[in-house]
Design a protein around this nucleic acid. Structure first.
Length: 784
DNA sequence: TCCGATCTATTTTTT
DNA sequence: ATAGATCGGA
C-alpha cells in the first residue's frame, strides 16, 4: 500500500505515557543506556546546552539520536516540547519506530518528528497567514516549478536554450536557500556577475515573475517552505516566540546536509535556550548541489562557543576491510574534520572488482553474483543492494535481475507521484483544494479533451495577467471579462468551473475515498485512460486505482487513530496537504519486502546492507563529468563514493563497464579514478606486477594471469553478444586508412589516430553506425 | 481544435 | 532511447 506511512509523515508520537510506574521507568532507562558504548553514552546524556555529535559512518548515529530523545523524555521533558528534524520521511519513521521499541508506544503523540519540509509546511499552514498565505496553499514540486518557469521564459520571449528552465530553477532555488529574495537578487553583485558571465542576466526578472505567479496561485515551492518559515520567524517576533516555547529541544539529523535557510531557522528557533542537538558526519555531506553547506558544521563552534562536542568513531556496521578501504578513500579529501573510524569486527572479504565489457554485461555479472551469493550463503534478496550514480543506470541491472527472476525494488527515478496519470488526477484534487493552483488548472482543464484549446487558454492567461488575478478567477467569472473568445469556448470554460465547484461539494460531504473516486470518474479522466487501448494505458488505469486505494487506506487508518489527535481524521484535505512532499521511498509494501534494492547512492545514505554492489565505476559517470573540474565538486563525489562503500556490512563489489549505452549511443569509458584510491591489498583483483601508477585492471585484457575463481566463473557466464569469442588484433601500430572489424559496429575504416600510450584513440568510420572514437586500450578491433 | 509527425532535450544527485 | 513539446495539415 502506497500510503501506509502517510499518517506518519509528521510523526507525532506521544511518548509521555511510557513508564507510568516510576520503578518500571528506572529499569527501562538503565537497561537502555546499557546498550551504549562510552562515547554514545556521553553523547546521549549530554547536558541541555548546544551539542554536536560527529558520527562516523555506521557508528550508531540514529541510535544516539533516538536514545537522546528517550533520555530527555525520561528526564521529564514534555514530549510536546521536542522537535526532531530529519532529511527523509523514512528516517523520521524509522526513528519513531525505534523510540517506540525503546520505551513503548503512547497514545497521544507529541514529539514532532519529520523532515524539514514537512514540519515547516505544517507550521506555515498554522501561521502562514501572517505572510498572506491561506492555510490551503499548494506545494509545487520541482516539476511544477519547472513548468511554471518554462512558461514565464516563454511569456518573456526569452530563448529557452539560453534560459534553460532547469538551470534557472536551480539558480532561483540557490537564491531562496540563501535567503535572497527577488529584490536583492538583482542587486547582489556576485550573483549578477555569475549570471552575466553565463549570459543569463535576466534571471532576476524571471525570479520576480516566478514568485509573483506562485503567489497568485497560492502556491509555495520546496524552497519557499523553508524561506517562508524563516521570514515568518524573522518578521513576526510573537510567532517565533510561540514556536520557541513549543520547541524547547531541537534535534537535527544529518546536520552536514543543512543549507543556509535551514541553518538560520534552527538558529532562530534555538536562540532562547540553545537546546540544540545536532548529529552529522562531514564525510557524508553529499547535497551541496542543493545548497547544503558543511560550513554549518564547522561554524557550530563559533555559533555556540560553550558547545559540547562528541565524536563517535567506532563503526558497528562493516568489516575491517570495508572500514579501512573507506578511510583510505576519504583521506584523499582535504576538507574534513579529523576523525578515525575504526571497528573491532572481523577482517571479512576483500572488496570485489569486476570489469565488464558493456553495461549489459555489468548487469549480468552483478545479477549472477547476487544469485551465487544468495545460494551459497543462503541470503535473502533484501541482503543485496545495487547502488549507482545516476538513475538511468538502473535499466541494465533491472533487465539482468528480471532475466534471473530475482525480485527487486527500485527507488527513485520516475516516482509514482511523477507519473503523468497520477499528476493528472492529483491536478483535479489540487484544484478542488486550491482553486488558484494554476499548474493544476492548466493540467486539468483539457485532460481529458474538452475542446478548451491553446487559443482559449492564451486569452484567459492574458486576462489573468492584466488584472493580476488567477486563471481560476477569470474562468469562474468568464462573462465579466472581455476575452474575445466565442460563446462555445465560454460555455466550455464555465462548464469546467461548474464541475470543479461540484467536486468541492462532494469533498465536503463524502469521505476521502468516495470523493476521490467520484472525481476520477466524473472528470472523465479514468474513462479517458480506460478507453485508450494503447498498452501503457492499462498500467495507467492500474496506477490511478492504486492511488485511489491508497486514499481509501489513508482514510480508514486516519479514522482509527482520530481520537483526540490534531491530525489523522483521514480527510481528503489532510491527504492532500503533504502529497507533494511524498516520495516513493515513503511507501512500504509490507507484503513482500524480500527484494534486491536498487537505488542511487544519494538515496542510500543512512541505510545499510550486507552486500553492496556499486556499479558504473567509470570516469565521467562516477565521478560525474560535471564534477571533475573543481576540487570542491570532486571532493563531494568522493564523499559520495565513501557513502556508497560504507553502506556495506559484509562485502562491497565495485564494477565498471568498458562500454556503456548512454545518450542513445555507445560510449567508451575508462575505469574511475576512485578505483585507484582503494587500497590494493583490500581489493580482490588478479595479482601481477604493477606498471607505474597503472593498475592491473587498467591494463589490456590480454592478461595472462588467471583471475580469482569467482571472477573467472562469472566471466564464463554466457553473454549473448559475441564479444567473448571475437579475436582482437594487436592495435599498437594501427594506421590511418586501415580497415578494421569491431564486434558490435562491424567493418570500418580508421580515419584518425590521436593520443599516445594507454590513451591512444582511433576515430573509425563504420558505415553502419557512423564515426566512433575508440580507446584502443579497450576497443576490440581486428585489423583486416 | 485535433491528431499525427517531427523535433528536442534529457542524464547528477532530491525534499 | 524516449518522452514531451512543437508544428503542420485536416
Amino acid at each position: 500500500m502506497l500510503y501506509t506511512t502517510f499518517a506518519h509523515l509528521l510523526i507525532l508520537c506521544n511518548l509521555s505515557a511510557f513508564g507510568q510506574i516510576y520503578f518500571e521507568k528506572q529499569i527501562i532507562v538503565s537497561s537502555f543506556l546499557n546498550d551504549l558504548n562510552k562515547e554514545q553514552y556521553a553523547a546521549v546524556t549530554a547536558p541541555d546546552g548546544p551539542s554536536m555529535v560527529i558520527a562516523g559512518a555506521g557508528s550508531g548515529k540514529t541510535r544516539v539520536l533516538t536514545y537522546r530523545i528517550a533520555y530527555l523524555l525520561n528526564k521529564g521533558v514534555d514530549p510536546f516540547n521536542v522537535l526532531a528534524l530529519t532529511f527523509t520521511n523514512k528516517a523520521a519513521r524509522e526513528m519513531k519506530e525505534r523510540i517506540i521499541k525503546l520505551i513503548g508506544n503512547g497514545d497521544a503523540r507529541n514529539v514532532w518528528m519529520g523532515t524539514f519540509h514537512s514540519v515547516f509546511a505544517r507550521i506555515l499552514r498554522f501561521d502562514g497567514s501572517h505572510l498572506g498565505y491561506p492555510s490551503n496553499f499548494t506545494i509545487y514540486d520541482s516539476d511544477d516549478s519547472k513548468r511554471l518557469i518554462r512558461q514565464i521564459i516563454k511569456d518573456k520571449d526569452l530563448d529557452n536554450k539560453t534560459y534553460n528552465p532547469s538551470y534557472v530553477r536551480a539558480r532561483i532555488s540557490m537564491a531562496k536557500s540563501s535567503l535572497i529574495l527577488p529584490d536583492n537578487y538583482g542587486s547582489d553583485a556576485e550573483i549578477m556577475a555569475t549570471d552575466t558571465a553565463a549570459r543569463k542576466p535576466l534571471i532576476s526578472e524571471i525570479y520576480a515573475a516566478y514568485n509573483n505567479r506562485l503567489r497568485r496561485a497560492n502556491a509555495m515551492d520546496f524552497d519557499d517552505l523553508l524561506l517562508n518559515t524563516y521570514l515568518l520567524f524573522n518578521n513576526f517576533g510573537e510567532v517565533l516566540y510561540k514556536w520557541q516555547r513549543r520547541f524547547q529541544h531541537i534535534l537535527v539529523d544529518e546536520y552536514q546536509d543543512t543549507n543556509h535557510v535551514q541553518y538560520m531557522i534552527i538558529k532562530k528557533l534555538a536562540s532562547n535556550n540553545e537546546h540544540v542537538y545536532v548529529v552529522g558526519d562531514d564525510a557524508q555531506s553529499i547535497y551541496s548541489f542543493r545548497g547544503a553547506n558543511i560550513q554549518n558544521m564547522l561554524n557550530f563552534k563559533s555559533d555556540y562557543p560553550d558547545y559540547k562536542l562528541f565524536k563517535l568513531q567506532q563503526n558497528y556496521r562493516s568489516t575491517k576491510t570495508i572500514v579501512e578501504a573507506a578511510n583510505k578513500i576519504i583521506a584523499n579529501n582535504k576538507e574534513q574534520i579529523k576523525k578515525t573510524v575504526w571497528t573491532d569486527k572481523e577482517k571479512g572479504q576483500k572488496i570485489g572488482l569486476v570489469r565488464a565489457t558493456s553495461d549489459s554485461e555489468e548487469g549480468n555479472l552483478t545479477a549472477g553474483s547476487i544469485f551465487e551469493i544468495k545460494m551459497r550463503e543462503q541470503q535473502p534478496n533484501s541482503a543485496f543492494a545495487v547502488l549507482y550514480r545516476t538513475n538511468a543506470q538502473s535499466r541494465s541491472i533491472e533487465e539482468a535481475l528480471r532475466k534471473r527472476n530475482i525480485p527487486y525494488r527500485i527507488y527513485g527515478g520516475l516516482s509514482f507521484y511523477q507519473r503523468k496519470e497520477i499528476k493528472d488526477l492529483l491536478a483535479y484534487f489540487r484544484l478542488v483544494i486550491n482553486n488558484n493552483d494554476e499548474d493544476a488548472l492548466q493540467r486539468a482543464i483539457n485532460t481529458p479533451a474538452r475542446g478548451i484549446g491553446k487559443t482559449t487558454m492564451e486569452r484567459v492567461m492574458v486576462a489573468a495577467d492584466q488584472h493580476n488575478i488567477s486563471l481560476w478567477e477569470v474562468i469562474n467569472n468568464v462573462e465579466k471579462f472581455n476575452l474575445g473568445i466565442n460563446s462555445g469556448a465560454m460555455r466550455k470554460l464555465a462548464a469546467f468551473a461548474t464541475m470543479i465547484k461540484s467536486f468541492e461539494v462532494v469533498v465536503k460531504n463524502k469521505d476521502a475515498f468516495d470523493a476521490a473516486q467520484h472525481i476520477a470518474i466524473a472528470s472523465g479522466l479514468l474513462k479517458m485512460y480506460k478507453d485508450d487501448d494503447a498498452i501503457e494505458s492499462m498500467s495507467k488505469v492500474e496506477n490511478i486505482e492504486e492511488l485511489l486505494n491508497s486514499i481509501k487506506d489513508f482514510s480508514e487508518k486516519g479514522a482509527e487513530q482520530a481520537e483526540g489527535d490534531l491530525e489523522g481524521q483521514g480527510t481528503f484535505h489532510e491527504f492532500m496537504q503533504n502529497v507533494a512532499l511524498l516520495t516513493d521511498a515513503d511507501d512500504d509494501d509490507d507484503e513482500n519486502n524480500d527484494k534486491v534494492i536498487l537505488m542511487t547512492i544519494h538515496a542510500a545514505k543512512g541505510l545499510e546492507f550486507p552486500y553492496v554492489f556499486v556499479v558504473g565505476m567509470e570516469e565521467n559517470l562516477f565521478p560525474s563529468m560535471q564534477s571533475v573540474s573543481t576540487r570542491t565538486d570532486l571532493e563531494e563525489e568522493r564523499r559520495l563514493f565513501y557513502v556508497a562503500v560504507t553502506r556495506a556490512m559484509k562485502k562491497v563489489t565495485l564494477s565498471y563497464a568498458e562500454t556503456r549505452y548512454r545518450w542513445g549511443e555507445f560510449t567508451v569509458g575508462e575505469p574511475s579514478r576512485f578505483l585507484e584510491e582503494v587500497d590494493e591489498d583490500l581489493l580482490d583483483i588478479p595479482k601481477k606486477a604493477s606498471v607505474g601508477r597503472e593498475r592491473d585492471f587498467r591494463q589490456s585484457e590480454k592478461s595472462t594471469t588467471s583471475p580469482p575463481m569467482h571472477f573467472q566463473k562469472r566471466n564464463l557466464k554466457p553473454v549473448e553478444n559475441n564479444s567473448q569469442s571475437f579475436e582482437a588484433s594487436n592495435t599498437s601500430d594501427l594506421q590511418v586508412g586501415m580497415q578494421v572489424v569491431h564486434p558490435k559496429f562491424g567493418t570500418g575504416k580508421v580515419v584518425a589516430i590521436e593520443g599516445t600510450g594507454p590513451n591512444k584513440k582511433a576515430a573509425v568510420f563504420f558505415p553502419v553506425v557512423g564515426q566512433k572514437k575508440l580507446l584502443l586500450r579497450f576497443a576490440k578491433l581486428k585489423v583486416l
